[in-house]
Protein backbone atom coordinates (compact mmCIF):
# COMPACT_ATOMS: atom_id res chain seq x y z
CA UNK A 1 0.00 0.00 0.00
CA UNK A 2 1.30 3.42 -0.90
CA UNK A 3 0.01 6.88 -1.75
CA UNK A 4 -0.81 7.21 -5.41
CA UNK A 5 -2.80 9.63 -7.47
CA UNK A 6 -5.98 8.62 -9.23
CA UNK A 7 -4.05 8.89 -12.49
CA UNK A 8 -1.24 6.65 -11.26
CA UNK A 9 -3.79 4.16 -9.98
CA UNK A 10 -5.40 3.94 -13.43
CA UNK A 11 -2.02 3.62 -15.09
CA UNK A 12 -1.06 0.82 -12.72
CA UNK A 13 -4.34 -1.01 -13.41
CA UNK A 14 -3.67 -0.86 -17.15
CA UNK A 15 -0.08 -2.02 -16.76
CA UNK A 16 -0.95 -4.92 -14.48
CA UNK A 17 -3.80 -6.11 -16.68
CA UNK A 18 -1.64 -5.91 -19.79
CA UNK A 19 1.03 -7.95 -18.01
CA UNK A 20 -1.54 -10.51 -16.88
CA UNK A 21 -3.41 -10.99 -20.15
CA UNK A 22 -1.91 -10.40 -23.55
CA UNK A 23 -5.34 -10.04 -25.09
CA UNK A 24 -5.61 -6.67 -23.33
CA UNK A 25 -4.58 -3.74 -25.49
CA UNK A 26 -5.03 0.03 -25.52
CA UNK A 27 -6.43 2.00 -28.42
CA UNK A 28 -7.15 5.71 -28.74
CA UNK A 29 -5.96 9.12 -29.80
CA UNK A 30 -2.44 9.98 -28.63
CA UNK A 31 -2.33 7.13 -26.14
CA UNK A 32 1.07 5.91 -27.38
CA UNK A 33 4.36 7.77 -27.02
CA UNK A 34 2.39 10.88 -26.07
CA UNK A 35 0.95 9.02 -23.07
CA UNK A 36 -2.64 10.14 -23.42
CA UNK A 37 -4.07 13.64 -23.33
CA UNK A 38 -4.10 13.63 -19.53
CA UNK A 39 -1.21 11.17 -19.14
CA UNK A 40 -3.12 8.07 -18.06
CA UNK A 41 -1.31 5.75 -20.50
CA UNK A 42 2.14 7.23 -19.85
CA UNK A 43 4.99 4.72 -20.12
CA UNK A 44 2.85 1.88 -21.43
CA UNK A 45 3.97 2.38 -25.03
CA UNK A 46 7.59 2.01 -23.94
CA UNK A 47 6.84 -1.23 -22.14
CA UNK A 48 4.35 -2.89 -24.46
CA UNK A 49 5.11 -1.31 -27.82
CA UNK A 50 2.89 -0.08 -30.61
CA UNK A 51 1.39 -3.54 -31.09
CA UNK A 52 -0.50 -3.15 -27.84
CA UNK A 53 -0.72 0.59 -27.31
CA UNK A 54 -2.23 1.87 -30.54
CA UNK A 55 -2.50 5.46 -31.68
CA UNK A 56 -5.47 5.96 -33.95
CA UNK A 57 -6.49 8.67 -36.38
CA UNK A 58 -8.84 11.26 -34.86
CA UNK A 59 -11.87 9.18 -35.81
CA UNK A 60 -13.91 8.27 -32.77
CA UNK A 61 -16.35 5.93 -34.53
CA UNK A 62 -13.40 3.91 -35.76
CA UNK A 63 -11.96 3.79 -32.23
CA UNK A 64 -15.13 2.61 -30.52
CA UNK A 65 -16.14 0.29 -33.38
CA UNK A 66 -12.68 -1.25 -33.57
CA UNK A 67 -12.84 -1.93 -29.86
CA UNK A 68 -16.29 -3.50 -30.22
CA UNK A 69 -15.31 -5.62 -33.22
CA UNK A 70 -12.06 -6.75 -31.62
CA UNK A 71 -13.86 -7.57 -28.36
CA UNK A 72 -16.47 -9.61 -30.24
CA UNK A 73 -13.53 -11.40 -31.89
CA UNK A 74 -11.96 -12.47 -28.60
CA UNK A 75 -9.68 -9.60 -27.55
CA UNK A 76 -10.03 -7.32 -24.53
CA UNK A 77 -9.60 -3.75 -25.71
CA UNK A 78 -9.37 -0.69 -23.50
CA UNK A 79 -10.32 2.26 -25.67
CA UNK A 80 -9.82 5.86 -24.67
CA UNK A 81 -11.73 8.86 -25.91
CA UNK A 82 -9.86 12.02 -25.09
CA UNK A 83 -13.00 13.67 -23.68
CA UNK A 84 -16.40 12.14 -23.02
CA UNK A 85 -17.86 14.93 -25.13
CA UNK A 86 -16.49 13.22 -28.24
CA UNK A 87 -18.77 10.23 -27.72
CA UNK A 88 -21.35 12.08 -29.81
CA UNK A 89 -19.20 11.42 -32.85
CA UNK A 90 -19.16 7.70 -32.19
CA UNK A 91 -22.34 7.01 -30.26
CA UNK A 92 -23.75 4.55 -32.78
CA UNK A 93 -20.84 2.19 -32.35
CA UNK A 94 -21.36 2.23 -28.59
CA UNK A 95 -25.11 2.14 -28.09
CA UNK A 96 -26.36 0.42 -31.24
CA UNK A 97 -23.46 -1.94 -31.82
CA UNK A 98 -21.42 -2.78 -28.71
CA UNK A 99 -24.27 -2.54 -26.22
CA UNK A 100 -26.86 -4.49 -28.20
CA UNK A 101 -24.81 -7.16 -29.92
CA UNK A 102 -25.23 -9.78 -27.24
CA UNK A 103 -28.99 -9.36 -26.90
CA UNK A 104 -29.74 -8.98 -30.62
CA UNK A 105 -27.76 -12.09 -31.45
CA UNK A 106 -29.52 -14.19 -28.83
CA UNK A 107 -26.57 -14.36 -26.44
CA UNK A 108 -23.97 -15.39 -28.98
CA UNK A 109 -21.75 -12.33 -28.79
CA UNK A 110 -19.51 -11.38 -25.90
CA UNK A 111 -18.14 -7.85 -26.00
CA UNK A 112 -15.56 -7.42 -23.25
CA UNK A 113 -14.47 -3.86 -24.01
CA UNK A 114 -13.73 -0.95 -21.71
CA UNK A 115 -14.24 2.60 -22.90
CA UNK A 116 -12.39 5.13 -20.72
CA UNK A 117 -13.47 8.75 -20.97
CA UNK A 118 -12.55 11.77 -18.86
CA UNK A 119 -15.41 14.07 -18.05
CA UNK A 120 -16.30 17.03 -15.87
CA UNK A 121 -15.83 20.78 -15.69
CA UNK A 122 -13.31 22.85 -13.77
CA UNK A 123 -10.40 23.43 -16.13
CA UNK A 124 -11.86 26.12 -18.34
CA UNK A 125 -12.42 23.73 -21.21
CA UNK A 126 -15.90 25.10 -22.01
CA UNK A 127 -19.01 23.53 -23.49
CA UNK A 128 -17.60 20.75 -25.67
CA UNK A 129 -14.85 19.45 -23.36
CA UNK A 130 -16.41 19.58 -19.89
CA UNK A 131 -19.67 17.67 -19.76
CA UNK A 132 -20.75 14.91 -17.39
CA UNK A 133 -22.75 12.52 -19.55
CA UNK A 134 -23.24 9.48 -17.34
CA UNK A 135 -27.02 9.63 -17.68
CA UNK A 136 -26.72 8.95 -21.43
CA UNK A 137 -24.95 5.66 -20.80
CA UNK A 138 -26.95 4.40 -17.83
CA UNK A 139 -30.04 4.64 -20.06
CA UNK A 140 -28.69 2.04 -22.48
CA UNK A 141 -29.37 -1.62 -21.71
CA UNK A 142 -26.21 -3.64 -22.30
CA UNK A 143 -23.74 -1.06 -20.99
CA UNK A 144 -22.20 -0.94 -17.53
CA UNK A 145 -21.30 2.48 -16.19
CA UNK A 146 -18.40 2.87 -13.76
CA UNK A 147 -17.68 6.27 -12.22
CA UNK A 148 -14.99 5.94 -9.55
CA UNK A 149 -14.21 8.76 -7.13
CA UNK A 150 -10.99 7.66 -5.40
CA UNK A 151 -7.63 6.27 -6.49
CA UNK A 152 -8.39 2.99 -4.71
CA UNK A 153 -11.69 2.57 -6.52
CA UNK A 154 -10.20 3.76 -9.80
CA UNK A 155 -7.63 0.98 -9.87
CA UNK A 156 -9.86 -1.81 -8.61
CA UNK A 157 -12.77 -0.85 -10.80
CA UNK A 158 -10.67 -0.47 -13.95
CA UNK A 159 -9.29 -3.97 -13.41
CA UNK A 160 -12.85 -5.25 -12.94
CA UNK A 161 -13.98 -3.39 -16.06
CA UNK A 162 -11.22 -4.94 -18.17
CA UNK A 163 -12.10 -8.42 -16.89
CA UNK A 164 -15.84 -7.88 -17.33
CA UNK A 165 -17.49 -9.70 -20.25
CA UNK A 166 -19.64 -6.67 -21.09
CA UNK A 167 -18.93 -3.24 -22.57
CA UNK A 168 -18.07 -0.98 -19.64
CA UNK A 169 -18.16 2.80 -19.90
CA UNK A 170 -15.52 4.05 -17.48
CA UNK A 171 -15.89 7.70 -16.54
CA UNK A 172 -12.98 9.55 -14.95
CA UNK A 173 -13.19 13.10 -13.66
CA UNK A 174 -10.40 15.35 -14.88
CA UNK A 175 -10.12 17.08 -11.51
CA UNK A 176 -9.64 13.72 -9.79
CA UNK A 177 -6.50 12.76 -11.73
CA UNK A 178 -4.27 14.59 -9.24
CA UNK A 179 -6.10 13.45 -6.10
CA UNK A 180 -4.10 10.95 -4.06
CA UNK A 181 -4.99 8.15 -1.72
CA UNK A 182 -3.90 4.74 -0.48
CA UNK A 183 -3.63 2.22 -3.29
CA UNK A 184 -2.28 -1.33 -2.90
CA UNK A 185 0.66 -2.08 -5.18
CA UNK A 186 -0.70 -5.49 -6.09
CA UNK A 187 -3.60 -6.16 -8.42
CA UNK A 188 -7.10 -6.24 -6.90
CA UNK A 189 -10.67 -5.78 -8.04
CA UNK A 190 -13.56 -3.65 -6.84
CA UNK A 191 -16.85 -5.22 -7.87
CA UNK A 192 -18.81 -3.23 -10.44
CA UNK A 193 -22.24 -2.53 -8.98
CA UNK A 194 -21.19 -2.33 -5.36
CA UNK A 195 -21.61 1.04 -3.65
CA UNK A 196 -19.30 2.26 -0.93
CA UNK A 197 -20.19 4.25 2.16
CA UNK A 198 -17.50 6.89 2.17
CA UNK A 199 -18.61 8.38 5.49
CA UNK A 200 -21.03 7.03 8.02
CA UNK A 201 -23.76 9.22 9.48
CA UNK A 202 -27.23 9.07 10.94
CA UNK A 203 -29.23 12.16 9.98
CA UNK A 204 -29.15 12.35 6.20
CA UNK A 205 -27.91 10.27 3.25
CA UNK A 206 -25.97 12.09 0.59
CA UNK A 207 -25.62 9.95 -2.54
CA UNK A 208 -22.81 11.49 -4.56
CA UNK A 209 -20.75 10.43 -7.57
CA UNK A 210 -17.30 11.14 -8.97
CA UNK A 211 -15.85 14.52 -7.94
CA UNK A 212 -19.05 15.28 -6.00
CA UNK A 213 -18.13 12.56 -3.50
CA UNK A 214 -15.29 14.80 -2.33
CA UNK A 215 -17.55 17.84 -2.31
CA UNK A 216 -20.12 15.89 -0.31
CA UNK A 217 -17.44 14.80 2.19
CA UNK A 218 -16.41 18.42 2.69
CA UNK A 219 -20.06 19.37 3.12
CA UNK A 220 -20.48 16.59 5.67
CA UNK A 221 -17.63 18.09 7.72
CA UNK A 222 -19.38 21.46 7.75
CA UNK A 223 -22.69 19.84 8.65
CA UNK A 224 -21.01 17.97 11.48
CA UNK A 225 -19.96 21.30 12.96
CA UNK A 226 -23.65 22.26 12.91
CA UNK A 227 -24.66 19.05 14.61
CA UNK A 228 -25.94 17.20 11.50
CA UNK A 229 -24.49 13.76 10.89
CA UNK A 230 -24.39 13.04 7.16
CA UNK A 231 -23.75 9.66 5.55
CA UNK A 232 -22.04 9.83 2.16
CA UNK A 233 -22.82 6.96 -0.21
CA UNK A 234 -20.85 6.58 -3.43
CA UNK A 235 -22.63 4.21 -5.83
CA UNK A 236 -19.31 3.91 -7.76
CA UNK A 237 -21.29 2.34 -10.57
CA UNK A 238 -24.52 3.68 -12.05
CA UNK A 239 -25.29 0.55 -14.05
CA UNK A 240 -25.68 -1.79 -12.33
CA UNK A 241 -26.84 0.43 -9.47
CA UNK A 242 -26.45 -0.86 -5.93
CA UNK A 243 -29.97 -0.11 -4.77
CA UNK A 244 -29.58 -2.09 -1.59
CA UNK A 245 -26.83 0.06 -0.11
CA UNK A 246 -28.65 3.28 -1.02
CA UNK A 247 -31.96 2.05 0.38
CA UNK A 248 -30.26 0.71 3.50
CA UNK A 249 -28.74 4.09 4.17
CA UNK A 250 -31.98 5.98 3.52
CA UNK A 251 -33.88 3.64 5.83
CA UNK A 252 -31.38 4.52 8.54
CA UNK A 253 -31.19 8.30 8.03
CA UNK A 254 -34.73 8.94 6.70
CA UNK A 255 -33.56 11.74 4.42
CA UNK A 256 -31.92 11.87 0.97
CA UNK A 257 -29.87 14.38 -0.98
CA UNK A 258 -28.38 13.34 -4.34
CA UNK A 259 -25.38 15.27 -5.65
CA UNK A 260 -23.78 15.04 -9.08
CA UNK A 261 -22.13 17.27 -11.63
CA UNK A 262 -24.32 16.19 -14.56
CA UNK A 263 -27.23 18.51 -15.22
CA UNK A 264 -30.11 17.87 -12.86
CA UNK A 265 -32.93 17.45 -15.36
CA UNK A 266 -33.15 13.75 -16.25
CA UNK A 267 -29.74 13.31 -14.64
CA UNK A 268 -28.62 10.25 -12.69
CA UNK A 269 -30.13 11.78 -9.55
CA UNK A 270 -33.57 11.60 -11.11
CA UNK A 271 -33.27 7.83 -11.35
CA UNK A 272 -31.90 7.50 -7.82
CA UNK A 273 -34.63 9.75 -6.41
CA UNK A 274 -37.34 7.85 -8.28
CA UNK A 275 -35.97 4.53 -7.09
CA UNK A 276 -35.96 5.67 -3.45
CA UNK A 277 -39.43 7.17 -3.80
CA UNK A 278 -40.72 3.89 -5.22
CA UNK A 279 -39.08 1.63 -2.73
CA UNK A 280 -38.62 3.59 0.51
CA UNK A 281 -41.00 6.55 0.48
CA UNK A 282 -42.39 5.59 3.86
CA UNK A 283 -38.96 5.91 5.40
CA UNK A 284 -38.47 9.50 4.27
CA UNK A 285 -39.16 12.34 6.70
CA UNK A 286 -38.71 15.03 4.08
CA UNK A 287 -38.70 15.57 0.30
CA UNK A 288 -35.72 14.29 -1.66
CA UNK A 289 -33.34 17.06 -2.74
CA UNK A 290 -31.07 17.07 -5.76
CA UNK A 291 -27.87 19.10 -6.11
CA UNK A 292 -26.71 19.19 -9.71
CA UNK A 293 -25.55 21.41 -12.52
CA UNK A 294 -28.12 23.81 -13.99
CA UNK A 295 -29.73 23.07 -17.35
CA UNK A 296 -27.25 24.95 -19.49
CA UNK A 297 -24.04 24.07 -21.37
CA UNK A 298 -20.80 24.31 -19.41
CA UNK A 299 -19.58 27.93 -19.66
CA UNK A 300 -15.99 29.05 -20.23
CA UNK A 301 -15.17 32.07 -18.06
CA UNK A 302 -13.99 31.03 -14.55
CA UNK A 303 -16.69 32.79 -12.50
CA UNK A 304 -19.39 31.33 -14.75
CA UNK A 305 -17.84 27.90 -14.62
CA UNK A 306 -17.66 28.07 -10.81
CA UNK A 307 -21.31 29.12 -10.73
CA UNK A 308 -22.11 26.06 -12.85
CA UNK A 309 -20.35 23.42 -10.75
CA UNK A 310 -22.26 22.40 -7.60
CA UNK A 311 -20.21 23.14 -4.47
CA UNK A 312 -20.23 22.13 -0.82
CA UNK A 313 -22.37 25.09 0.20
CA UNK A 314 -25.04 23.93 -2.27
CA UNK A 315 -25.01 20.52 -0.62
CA UNK A 316 -25.06 22.02 2.89
CA UNK A 317 -28.03 24.21 1.92
CA UNK A 318 -29.89 21.25 0.42
CA UNK A 319 -29.37 19.20 3.57
CA UNK A 320 -30.40 22.10 5.82
CA UNK A 321 -33.57 22.61 3.81
CA UNK A 322 -34.74 19.18 4.95
CA UNK A 323 -32.87 18.71 8.27
Amino acid sequence: MSKKTYLQALNEALRQEMERDEKVFIIGEDVGQFGGCFGVTQGLFDTFGEGRVMDTPITESAIVGTAAGAAASGLRPVAELMFVDFIGVSMDQLFNQAAKMRFMFGGKATVPMTLRMPQGAGIGAAAQHSQSLEAWFMHVPGLKVAIPSTPYDAKGMLISAIRDENPVVFLEHKLLYGVDGDVPDESYTVELGKADIKREGTDVTIVATSLMVHTALAAAEKLQADGISAEVVDPRCLQPLDKETILGSVKKTNALVVAHEAVGFAGPGAEIAAMVAEEALDYLDAPIKRVAAPFCPVPFSPPLEQAYIPNEDDIVAAVKSIR
Binding site: G69, A72, A109
Partner: peptide, 24 residues
Protein backbone atom coordinates in the same frame (compact mmCIF):
# COMPACT_ATOMS: atom_id res chain seq x y z
CA UNK B 1 -20.41 -10.95 -37.14
CA UNK B 2 -23.95 -9.94 -37.79
CA UNK B 3 -26.30 -8.22 -40.15
CA UNK B 4 -26.74 -4.60 -39.13
CA UNK B 5 -29.68 -2.26 -38.93
CA UNK B 6 -27.52 0.85 -39.21
CA UNK B 7 -26.32 1.93 -42.65
CA UNK B 8 -22.54 2.12 -42.35
CA UNK B 9 -22.57 0.40 -38.96
CA UNK B 10 -20.44 -2.56 -40.02
CA UNK B 11 -17.26 -0.80 -41.13
CA UNK B 12 -15.81 0.01 -37.70
CA UNK B 13 -16.71 -3.48 -36.43
CA UNK B 14 -14.92 -4.99 -39.42
CA UNK B 15 -11.86 -2.94 -38.47
CA UNK B 16 -11.92 -4.52 -35.04
CA UNK B 17 -12.29 -8.04 -36.40
CA UNK B 18 -9.47 -7.46 -38.87
CA UNK B 19 -7.30 -5.98 -36.14
CA UNK B 20 -7.94 -9.10 -34.06
CA UNK B 21 -6.69 -11.27 -36.95
CA UNK B 22 -3.54 -9.23 -37.16
CA UNK B 23 -3.10 -9.14 -33.39
CA UNK B 24 -3.43 -12.93 -33.15
Amino acid sequence: LGANGIVGGGGPLALGAALANKYE
